[in-house]
C-alpha cells in the first residue's frame, strides 16, 4: 500500500548570510507576487532605546521570517531570487498526513487516475 503525503514546506533562512534583511527584501516581494505571501520581515530584537535610538526603520536589524506556511506551495522562487543564497526550501520530517488515500497498488488523488495518469490541466 502506498501513501501520498501533502508536503509541508519550510523556508530556512541563514541570518548571517542574509545580513540586514530590510536592505533587500527580494524574497518577500517575490512571495507576494507569486501569491502565498508567507514571507515577511521583522526586527531581530526589539530595539533597546537605552542603548541606541534608531531614527529610521533601516537602522534596525531585520530578519526574514515565514508565517502562514500552510499556504506555501514550495515553488522555490524565493530561494532562486536570493542574491546571497541565504534561503533554503526544506521539507521537514515527520510529515503530517493531509491527503492520504491508501489503495492497493496505486495512489489515487483527485488529479491522478488509478493508472497514474495526471489529469491536471496545464
Amino acid at each position: 500500500m502506498e501513501e501520498h503525503v501533502t508536503p509541508r514546506y519550510r523556508v530556512a533562512v541563514d541570518e548571517d548570510a542574509c545580513g540586514n534583511a530590510i536592505d533587500c527584501l527580494l524574497c518577500v516581494k517575490t512571495c507576494l507576487d507569486h501569491g502565498p505571501n508567507v514571507l515577511g520581515y521583522m526586527n531581530k530584537e526589539a530595539p533597546d532605546l537605552d542603548k541606541f535610538i534608531p531614527r529610521r526603520l533601516e537602522d534596525i536589524d531585520h530578519k526574514i521570517i515565514s508565517g502562514f506556511m500552510i499556504n506555501c506551495d514550495g515553488c522555490g522562487e524565493c530561494v532562486a531570487v536570493c542574491p546571497k543564497s541565504a534561503l533554503t526550501l526544506v521539507v521537514p520530517e515527520p510529515q503530517v498526513h493531509r491527503a492520504l488515500i491508501p489503495r492497493d497498488g496505486s495512489i489515487v488523488l483527485c488529479g491522478t487516475l488509478a493508472d497514474g495518469t495526471e489529469i491536471f490541466p496545464d
Binding site: Y41, M42, N43
Partner: peptide
C-alpha cells in the same frame, strides 16, 4: 510601543513549527 514588530509579525513567525 517598542515590541510592536516583535509581537505583531513574530506571533506568526514559525508558529507552525
Amino acid at each position: 510601543g517598542v515590541y510592536k514588530n516583535s509581537f505583531e509579525v513574530g506571533a506568526t513567525a514559525d508558529s507552525e513549527d
